[in-house]
Design a binder for these strands. Structure first.
Lengths: 190, 190, 190, 190
DNA sequence: GTTTAAGCGAGACGGTACGTCTCGTCTTGAA
DNA sequence: TTCAAGACGAGACGTACCGTCTCGCTTAAAC
C-alpha cells in the first residue's frame, strides 16, 4: 500500500547524506559561528539550492545531522532506585564527548531564530526530557517522590544544571558532577 | 591626582548615551537577531567608527547598555532563613519584565563569540552569582547546608533552572515557580 | 508505404504547439528579457526537457513561433516601377504592428549568441532580403539602377534604416517614412 | 569657489579606473555574454557593492568605459563637399578596430533593458549623430541637399547601414564600403 | 593665539554570505 | 522513445553588514 510515488526525479539519498556529513565536518573543523550554507554546499559537492530545497536554515541541517548520528542514544535506565537511575542517566549523558560545540551552536541558533527554536525543542530537547520523565514516573510509583513535588521542576533542575554548565563552561560536566547532582535531586524529591 | 587629562578632544558623553539608548531601542523593536552596528549608528546619529572605537562588538554595546540600566538591582536579601532568602531572591529576579529578549540575545552572542563570553560571564552573570553565594554562605553558617553539599552545585541548580526556563520558554518564570524552586533547593541542601 | 516509422512514442504535435503558443504569450506578457525556458515549460504544461530536446535555446523557440505565425507574409510586389515596388514593400512591412518587442528580443539574442545569430539571419532576415532582392533585380532589368551601384548596398540601406528605427525607436516607422525612404533609394540608384 | 565638498570619504578615483579597465579586459577576453559584475569586481580587486554603488548595471560600466576611452574621437570633417566629408566620416568610423564586440554587447543590453537604452542612445549614439548632423547642415548651406529631403532620414541611412552591417556581420565595413555608401547618400540628397 | 591631538559624522572601501533565480542535465514512472 | 515532473550541480544575481579607511570639522589642552 506504499504506491504513493510522487512524479519527478526522486530525492537523492546520496546527496542528502553528503550534505549532512559536510555539515558535521565543517562544524567540527571551523566551529558553528564560521559555518555557512555556502561552505557546506561546496564541501558536499552540492548546489546551494539543493540545501535550501530541503532545509530552511543551516541550523536545521545541523540538527538533522545530529539526530541522524545519535539516533538511538537516549537510553532509559531502570536499576530500581531513583539515585541509581539518575546517576546512570547523567553519567551516560556526560560521557558524550566532543558534542559541546555542536550543542552550543544549535542552542545559539535557537535563541536567535524562533522558528528553529521550536524544531530544536521538540525534536531534540524533548526527546531526552521524555526519557528522564519516564525514570521519574517510575520513582514516583515507588514512592521516592513526595506528592507535593512537581516532577517537571525536577526535570528542569537536572537539565538546567546540565545546560547551564554546558553553555557557561565554568564547571566540569563529569561523572563526579553527575553523581553529586543525582544525590541532591534525590534529596530534594524527599 | 586625577589631572591626567589626555590631549585631544575628550569622549562625548552625549554620544555614548545616544549609542546605548539606540542599541536598546533597536533591540526591543527588531530583536537581537536583526540588530546591526550599522542600525545602531544610524539611529544614534553616530558614525560606525565611533562605536568600534569604544566597543569591540555589538554585544558589548548591549551588555554595557544593560549594566548601565540595571546598575544596582542585585539586592542580597537577609531574612534569617535560607528558604525566605532564596524565595526573595528568585521572586525579585523573576519580577524583571521585558528583559528576556535582551538576555537571550546576549547569551546567544556569548555562545558564538568566546571573547564576548568572558565579558558576559564576568561582568554580568558572576555578579548575580556572587550575590546568591553570599546568601548561601550565611545559610551555611546557620547550619542550613549539610557539610557534604557543594554550594557551587546549589548555585548551578538555581541559575540553571532560571536560565533553562528563560532560554527554552517552555514553563513560567513567575513567583510560584520561584517559591517551588526555593523549597526544593532548601530540601536538597538538607 | 512510407514505413520509415521510428520506434517509440512519436513526437506530440499538441505539445509542440503548446510550447510555441506559451512562448509567444510569455513574451507579450512579460517581455523578452523576462522570458525563461522554465516559464515557457510551466505555462505550456510541458517538461523543460521536452523543450531542450527540440530547440537549442529559448530564442529558437521564439523564432519558430514567429515563423509559424507569419509563414507567408513575405509578398513580392511587382507594380512596374522601383518607386512603387519599394513603397509597397516598406508600407507593407511597416504595417505589421506589435511585432517590435519580439523582433527586438530576437535581435538581442542573436547579438549575444553567435549560434542563434546564424539561425536568425538565414531563416528570418534573409527571407525578407531575398524578396527585396528580386524587386531590385527587376528594376535593374528595367534600367532603373545604374551599373556602378551595388544592389547589396541598396538592400542594406533599406533594411538598415528599417532595423535602425526599429531598434532605437527614435523616429516613426510609418507609411510616410516608407514613402520617404523609397524616394531616396530610387534617387540613389540613379 | 567650488567648496561643495560632500561629507564622508570621497570616491576613489583609482578604484573607478580599475573597475572600468577590468570591464574592458573581461569583455575583450570573454565576450559580452560571459560578462558578469562578479567577474569585473574580482578582476578589479573591488567589492561588488562598490560597482553597484556607482553603476546600475554592468552595461553602464561598459558604456562608461567606452566613453572614457574614446572621449574625443568624434571628429567633424570639413573638406568642402558632402561627398568628401561623408567618406571621411565613414572611413574614420570604420577604421576603429576591435570595437565590434563592445558595440554589439552594448546594443544587446540596450535592447533588453529600456532604462539602459536611454543612456546608450543619449550618451553614445546621439553624440556621433550630432557630429554627422553638423556635416549635413553645412552641405545644406552649400545647396548640396534638396529642400524636400529630410536630413534626419539621411542620418538614419548612414547610421542604419553602419549598424546593420555591424550587427549582422554579413558584409564588410571597410573603406571601400564607406566610399560606396557616401556616393549613394550624395546622390539621394540630390 | 596658535598648535597639536584626539573624537566625531559621514560614507566609501574590500569582503563574505545571504537567499533567489535560471540554466542545462539527469532520473523517475506513465503513455 | 517521448512526455511531465521535478531534483540536481553550477554559478550569477542584487542585498545586507561586516570591520577598516579616509575626509573635513570640532573640541580642548599645551605651548
Amino acid at each position: 500500500m506504499t504506491g504513493d510515488r510522487r512524479p519527478g526525479r526522486p530525492r537523492s539519498e546520496a546527496t542528502r547524506r553528503a550534505i549532512l556529513a559536510a555539515a558535521i565536518d565543517e562544524l567540527t573543523e571551523r566551529g558553528y559561528a564560521q559555518l555557512s550554507v555556502e561552505g557546506i554546499a561546496a564541501r558536499a559537492g552540492a548546489g546551494k539550492q539543493t540545501i535550501y530545497r530541503w532545509w530552511p536554515s543551516k541550523a536545521d541541517v545541523v540538527l538533522d545531522a545530529m539526530l541522524d548520528e545519535a539516533a538511538s542514544l537516549i537510553a532509559v535506565p531502570d536499576e530500581g532506585s531513583l539515585a541509581a537511575d539518575l546517576a546512570g542517566f547523567l553519567v551516560d549523558t556526560f560521557r558524550q564527548r566532543g558534542q559541546r560545540p555542536v550543542l552550543v551552536g544549535l542552542m545559539a541558533e535557537a535563541l536567535l531564530d524562533p522558528v528553529f527554536a521550536v524544531q530544536f525543542r521538540d525534536r531534540f530537547l524533548f526527546g531526552r526530557r521524555d526519557a528522564l520523565r519516564t525514570v521519574l514516573a517510575r520513582a514516583a510509583d515507588r514512592g521516592e517522590i513526595a506528592a507535593d513535588v512537581d516532577p517537571e521542576m525536577l526535570l528542569d533542575i537536572v537539565f538546567g544544571v546540565l545546560w547551564y554548565r554546558l553553555l557557561l563552561d565554568h564547571a566540569p560536566l563529569d561523572e563526579e558532577a553527575g553523581r553529586q547532582l543525582a544525590t541532591l535531586v534525590v534529596r530534594a524529591a524527599r
